[in-house]
């Protein structure tokens, strides 16, 4: 695959150009220790020094609230109108774990069942990855089959190198984007981009403070649905939605209508969370996951088993967000270690 280099000045100019020609979504420093992916109007708003955005960038492809269609009734007619879709976009500066997060969402929304909303956004969005330069204390992507410089799944991958950034072209779509803005790029004549990235990857691999081993875990969970461990773990769970909302792979949603006059309105969907008690509550009042134990178990089985059952992919990419933000220290790395311990004693 081809590689290019770009100077810092040119990177700024390129991003300004991208913001003009596309909807550009990039990491923004919102507050102290809060960074979010947001639409930006140019390079000046972007914070490329971020390590892990507070909320994953999945929200561009699967928005927290998304209008699906408008409806109106008159006489015995119902008229439907499509909601607006955003059009061509560039999702810029994705960390490798978040790219893997998107790859984990693809078979859910874009596999056997084609979700037209996700599909449209996915098709219209160019993914530009950015190799990590630091490992945060809760990062564990290498334990989940990823790595801080593994940009697979993106269209382009940027890596900070001496004097600017190296750019690797990973897909024909990425190639097209580079060609369109070729004035900003230089050919990687000395072939230094790929070795520099590999070198960085090796260096960062030694910076992970905690590694986990999921070997055999799915097979154990296949056989053990009921474990007292879940009940113990769930006692301290607050039942809030932090973990599911900041997670790059959680994808549950609810559909609802808003109609001020009861005759016309909009149907939307919005993120929902399996941690909420009413998530599985049925119309008649029955709740098949009646306590937090069932809910906590569901979330971790989804990450460690169900996603693998369905798509042969891990449901966790090791970004560490839930570890950082859980107010009661429900730490998936610890859960994996604990379950391995439980498995050893079975």
């Amino acid at each position: 695959m081809k590689a290019y280099t770009i100077t810092r000045d040119n990177l700024g100019a390129w991003l300004d150009a991208l913001a003009r020609d596309y909807t550009l979504i990039a990491p923004v420093r919102e507050e102290e220790s809060v960074s979010l992916f947001k639409p930006v109007s140019g390079f000046a708003e972007i914070n490329l020094g971020y390590t892990n955005s507070t909320v994953s960038p999945k929200g561009w492809l699967f928005p927290q609230t998304e209008e699906m269609f408008f409806f109106s009734t008159g006489g015995d007619q119902i008229t439907l109108a499509d909601a607006q879709t955003p059009g061509p976009a560039v999702l810029f500066g994705l960390r490798p774990c978040d790219i893997k997060g998107i790859l984990a969402l693809d078979p859910v929304f874009n596999g056997a069942y084609q979700d037209c909303y996700y599909q449209k956004r996915r098709q219209d969005t160019i993914l530009v990855g950015l190799s990590c330069t630091r490992v945060e204390r809760d990062c564990f992507c290498t334990s989940m089959g990823g790595g801080p410089t593994d940009g697979g799944g993106a269209d382009l991958l940027l890596t900070e190198i001496d004097g600017g950034y190296g750019i690797e072209v990973l897909t024909p779509r990425g190639e097209k984007l580079v060609n369109r803005y070729q004035q900003y790029f230089d050919a990687d004549r000395e072939n230094r981009v790929i070795p520099a990235r590999e070198e960085l990857g090796k260096k960062l691999a030694g910076h992970f403070t905690r590694n986990v081993d999921t070997t055999g875990l799915k097979e154990f969970l296949d056989q053990h649905f009921e474990l007292p461990y879940w009940g113990e773990l769930a006692r301290r769970c607050l039942g809030c939605g932090i973990c599911t909302y900041i997670c790059p792979t959680c994808h549950c949603f609810d559909i609802f209508d808003q109609s001020p006059d009861g005759e016309s309105g909009v149907r939307s969907r919005c993120w929902d969370s399996c941690m909420f008690s009413h998530f599985t509550r049925m119309a008649g009042g029955h709740n098949p996951r009646p306590t937090q134990k069932e809910r906590v178990r569901n979330r971790f089985l989804h990450k460690l088993k169900y996603h693998r059952d369905r798509y042969n992919l891990d449901g966790c990419v090791g970004c560490g967000r839930c570890v950082t933000r859980c107010p009661v220290n429900i730490d998936i790395r610890q859960i994996i270690a604990d379950l391995q311990e439980v498995a050893r004693h079975e």
């Binding site: 919102e30 939605g241 932090i242 599911t244 969370s273």
Partner: peptide, 12 residues
């Protein structure tokens, strides 16, 4: 505007 409506504030 950046509230996630995760309801952690309420639940705690």
């Amino acid at each position: 505007s950046r509230c996630l409506r995760c309801y952690a504030c309420r639940n705690v």
